[in-house]
């Protein structure tokens, strides 16, 4: 497939899958609460409605540019994430590049929220960055362990190593079970779900970063959520679940990752900011460090 076509199809596929994931999240939440939940087209309708608002408020140039950065940054991330049949630009930037590119939309959002000049938003961003300091440390320990285990940071090579022979035994989760568990905790916090949902906290800080977002501004954040669900779950699948031979297996695994997260979410209230840090720095970090030790023993150093 030509690279130009891939660059078009990869974000499109990511968006559609992300929409389905959002739908699944809402459906699962409804089931847990013994409701019926929204119809299948609901995520799409929400986004279309938001983009079709007649009036919307901008708080300045940076507020506008931030929305472009959010959308552009998150699309750019997807281009570096190989999926079955399409490797996109993943040969030109490795795992570390991908992880740092994932921070660009967050940075854009942080700047835009800053310009909306609402302290609820600023508190939200302060909390989001604090939560990031919480979950990125265990996640990067897992990434370091995985990179050492595979001996590479090239995502295509990581996939090839795991899919070698077509059996389970090369999967990251079999080879590095502790790291996979720790990374799952970190991924859960990365998706910003309860009990780590400190930066949205509608009842406390009025949805934090989203407080001044209307119309297409909010719509872009909805789109970002779709992409984020896709990126994070597919990245986890790539690192620990052997990626996918086909779209079917990939989506099965990616949906499973999100599903676990969503199931956990619905039975928890929200932690306090410092408790998020303490929890993330105690359990996932501890497990990840043990896992890292195991990887170091395996590679013989």
């Amino acid at each position: 497939m030509s690279i130009a076509l891939q660059l078009l199809l990869m974000p499109l596929a990511a968006f559609l899958v992300g929409l389905a994931m959002v739908l699944m999240m809402r459906k699962v939440r409804a089931s847990v609460e013994r409701r019926i939940g929204p119809p299948w087209y609901q995520p799409l309708f929400d986004i279309y409605k938001l983009f079709a608002k007649d009036t919307q408020i901008s708080h300045g140039v940076m507020h506008d540019v931030a929305i472009m950065m959010v959308l552009g940054g998150i699309i750019c991330v997807v281009l570096f994430l190989p999926v079955p049949g399409m490797s996109g630009l993943s040969a030109k930037g490795d795992l570390i590049t991908l992880l740092y590119l994932m921070m660009v939309p967050s940075l854009g959002m942080a700047l835009g929220v800053g310009q909306t000049a609402n302290p609820n938003g600023s508190i939200g961003i302060a909390r989001a960055l604090t939560a990031m300091a919480g979950y990125e440390i265990p996640f990067f320990i897992c990434v370091a362990g995985a990179a050492l285990h595979y001996g590479t940071t090239d995502l295509n090579q990581i996939l090839t190593i795991q899919q070698h022979g077509g059996h389970l035994e090369h999967w990251g989760i079999v080879q590095m079970p502790l790291l996979a568990v720790a990374a799952l905790f970190a991924v859960h916090a990365m998706l910003g779900k309860e009990p780590f949902e400190i930066y949205v906290a509608p009842a406390e800080i009025a949805t934090g970063p989203m407080v001044e977002m209307s119309g297409k501004y909010l719509g872009t954040l909805f789109v970002m959520q779709c992409f984020q669900l896709f990126t994070v779950s597919v990245l986890y699948t790539t690192l620990f679940l052997g990626g996918g031979f086909s779209w079917f297996t990939l989506l099965l695994k990616a949906f499973a990752v999100v599903f676990i997260s969503v199931l956990v979410t619905n039975v928890y209230p929200r932690y306090r900011t410092d408790d998020v840090l303490r929890w993330q720095w105690k359990w996932p970090t501890g497990i990840a460090l043990l896992g890292l030790g195991m990887v170091m023993l395996q590679i013989g150093r």
Binding site: A30, I36, G37, P38, P202, S214
Partner: peptide, 22 residues
Amino acid sequence: MTSRFDLERVGMQPMVTPRQAD
């Protein structure tokens, strides 16, 4: 809103700030 009648069936969601609400 909750399980008895479930307004999310018709796509209604509570929002917390006027900017987001219809």
